[in-house]
C-alpha cells in the first residue's frame, strides 16, 4: 500500500508564497495548460466578485488543477480542481495563473 497524498502540497502562508514567485517571470494561464497536464495554481488575477468566487471554490495558491477537455469552437473548459470537476469559460481560465507541476497529470 502506497500512501499517496491526495490533496494539496503544503501551503506556505499566502503572502509569503506570492512574494516568492514574483521572481519567476514565466507565468502560464490555465488556458495554456495542455490537456491532461497537472498544474499548480499561482493566483487568480481577476478583480471583484468573480475572482473571489474562484478562490472560494479552491483556486488557492498551490492547488492542483488539470484541464480535462475543451469544448469545441472556443467553448468552455472542463477542469479538475483539487478533487472535483468544474467547467469555466476561457475568459476566466485566462485569468488563472498556473505553473505546470513536475510529473504527469492524471487525466
Amino acid at each position: 500500500m502506497d500512501p499517496v497524498v491526495a490533496l494539496p502540497a503544503p501551503l506556505l502562508h499566502p503572502l509569503v508564497a506570492r512574494s516568492g514567485d514574483r521572481q519567476g517571470k514565466e507565468r502560464h494561464a490555465l488556458t495554456d495548460l495542455a490537456v491532461g497536464v497537472l498544474g499548480r495554481v499561482q493566483g487568480v488575477e481577476l478583480a471583484g466578485a468573480m475572482g473571489e468566487r474562484l478562490v472560494e471554490l479552491g483556486f488557492t495558491h498551490g492547488a492542483p488543477v488539470t484541464v480535462l477537455r475543451r469544448a469545441p469552437f472556443g467553448g468552455p473548459l472542463q477542469v479538475r480542481l483539487r478533487d472535483f470537476m468544474l467547467s469555466l469559460r476561457r475568459e476566466q481560465a485566462d485569468a488563472i495563473r498556473v505553473r505546470p507541476a513536475e510529473g504527469k497529470g492524471d487525466a
Binding site: P8, E45, G48, G51, E52
Partner: peptide, 18 residues
C-alpha cells in the same frame, strides 16, 4: 486583486483546511 484582504480571508481558511 491577488493581494486584497478579502482574498486573504479565504486563503487563510484554506491554509487551515488543507
Amino acid at each position: 486583486p491577488t493581494r486584497d484582504v478579502r482574498r486573504q480571508v479565504t486563503e487563510s481558511r484554506y491554509a487551515r483546511i488543507d
